[in-house]
Design a protein around this nucleic acid. Sequence first.
DNA 1: CGTCTCTTTGAAACGCGTCAATGGCTGTGG
DNA 2: CCACAGCCATTGACGCGTTTCAAAGAGACG
Lengths: 223, 223
Amino acid sequence: VGREPAAGVLEGLDPAEARRILDAGRPRAVRKGATIFREGEPARAMHLVEAGRIRLGQVTAAGDEVVVRMAGPGELFAAVAALDGRSYPFTATAAEPTRLREWDLSVLAELLRACPRFQANVLGIVGIHAREMLDRFRELATEPAPQRIARALLRLLGPPGPSGERVAEGVTRRDLAAMAGTTLYTASRVMAAWQREDLVRPGRGRVVVPSAARLVELAEARA
Amino acid sequence: VGREPAAGVLEGLDPAEARRILDAGRPRAVRKGATIFREGEPARAMHLVEAGRIRLGQVTAAGDEVVVRMAGPGELFAAVAALDGRSYPFTATAAEPTRLREWDLSVLAELLRACPRFQANVLGIVGIHAREMLDRFRELATEPAPQRIARALLRLLGPPGPSGERVAEGVTRRDLAAMAGTTLYTASRVMAAWQREDLVRPGRGRVVVPSAARLVELAEARA
DNA sequence: CGTCTCTTTGAAACGCGTCAATGGCTGTGG
DNA sequence: CCACAGCCATTGACGCGTTTCAAAGAGACG
């Protein structure tokens, strides 16, 4: 199953209409660590990341954290909550300084109705996210921890730099663990082992991957 | 998070319109074990269970099975695939003789456009399913196997009978394991242990639960 | 320069998966 | 009608992957 480059919400719209839709949304800037909304709150809006990174997570009654997804530039979040008007299913916090654009429920409903292509785009993105959750569910149920950590890391990597290396910036061992459904300790050990094999160059709050290809092999091994 | 009684797709529609929508769908009967569609196939339709039970599952490259959801009477499946027109994200097979109603993509698009309430209902159901996957993801990442098996069992139980007992019919240990993300063996052992505590009365392909309350306690314990 | 977060590493315990073998129930066909 | 095949279930033994607990080091930030 190939990963698609998160098709933009404005894909295929003519520039004027795209402009109109963007302008209907409210811009918002948040500091690192700021909370956009909390799990259980009634949905107010659909949110788009313009720059920065948002961490979508749940906290269990026992205090364990689970990261549902990290949303980067161009990515939508809480689209389902906005579409069905119920409550937010996770808590959103800024992993770094972030610019957002937010469409309030009533405004959104109007835009979706007026612009079929926009509606199709939003539904397409909802579909991508639903499929991704299904994949991660299966991975969590069937794959060992190191493999899941490889997948989590791949999902967090930025674009390749000049030397072909890719970096996951602002990602702690705790973050990796919370995405992979394991513990901080296991994540640390796995990174240490990979470092010895020269698969990664881990640092404090960052991971440098010289060649993602070997990581992909690891993630997709069907041992 | 309370579980809602899977709001029907036709909820809130006046009878005439409900009739019209139903008639636009194609009825279909399948034998036990029959495959409705396979993971990866291009989506053809949105499907509704009228009677019977459909098993929505994925199979890993290594051959392990994961059950994404069991869809019972009144429940919709593959709604997301039908909305975004891409491929089915799981394989659907009949767990028992089943009657379905299916709306082809083009027909569905027309109905959704013509009837806002119907569209809202479908989106609401998509939302419920998305939230449920999120919940199960968190449970899988943080809870021990017996607790997940308790949750799986609760999700599979039928309505309470005259004596207040509830039964999961046509559910094997393998099914329970595939829903809980564990193995057939662990499921068997857990059932045996619960039987000793008189929590369940397991049988071949069925599980009788005298009092679901104690199971709920087990499922929600935050120890 | 102290505090806080992030990280590493060891040692021990344990849950659960894995393997193997056995027995029972069901439906089918000779 | 009985025997066989096939699926479902049970149970023990074993081992390994991971979590858990504890302690200490290192980089970042005010």
